[in-house]
Design a binder for these strands. Structure first.
Lengths: 109, 109
DNA sequence: TTTGTATATAAGCATATGCTTATATCATTG
DNA sequence: CAATGATATAAGCATATGCTTATATACAAA
């Protein structure tokens, strides 16, 4: 079981609306940084920092493929992770928008 | 179900080691501020601010009795609350210490 | 190897957070 | 009502956080 320090890091990572949005997006499957930039309306470095924080908290894992980095949910060290993910509001609307006007996206590996 | 904003407030409240300690203490039952001050080794205003944050996030509720305010766990609006509380490390040691040398405590209502 | 694209890091700034001391509020008691 | 004790709020400060722009790194393709 995670100790107080690990739990604090986890909840700090969760305590940001943008990061909760990101986790909600990842419920539907892995995403690369450039997709998240499109959906979230913040700059690429900002997304990058968010992903780093989520990764350090062991809430997501990354898969590198070519020049892309794909992030996906992974909170296996937390017994409450599934409940937390389930309780996140859906973001299917924003994701559909992405699918419709995905003109500039090339990382469909 | 809580929305993104409510969830963010919840996790921000959880993202602090002192507050996780407090919630862990409250697993054993309600506590007044002066008891928490003793256990936590921080000043009374600091505890008061922590409790306010936990209360605003709807993670604890308060009961006023005379000049004391007793706080207890209450995360009923969060479907994951029980899991989160269960995953908190125990703090029975610190609480026992409190019971042994509780010379100055008078709020045993 | 040069160019372009994806991601990460650094620097700089504004805001949020947490602590302490000092003070205010509120209830109890004499 | 005055005094005491428990709790809350205010002020001031140090540190953390999150954003942007600028720059660096990594991979791909020509």
């Amino acid at each position: 079981m995670p100790d107080f320090e690990q739990l604090t890091e986890c909840y700090k990572a969760l305590g940001d609306q943008t990061r909760l949005q990101i986790l909600s997006f990842l419920k539907e499957g892995e995403r690369c940084v450039c997709e998240l930039v499109q959906i979230l309306n913040i700059t690429q470095p900002a997304v990058s920092r968010h992903m780093r924080k989520l990764k350090n908290a062991k809430l997501v894992k990354e898969r590198r493929s070519g020049q892309w980095v794909f992030y996906s949910l992974d909170g296996s060290i937390y017994p409450f992770f599934e409940k937390i993910v389930d309780s996140l509001p859906d973001s299917s609307e924003e994701i559909e928008k992405l699918n419709i006007c995905d003109s500039g996206i090339s990382c469909n590996s």
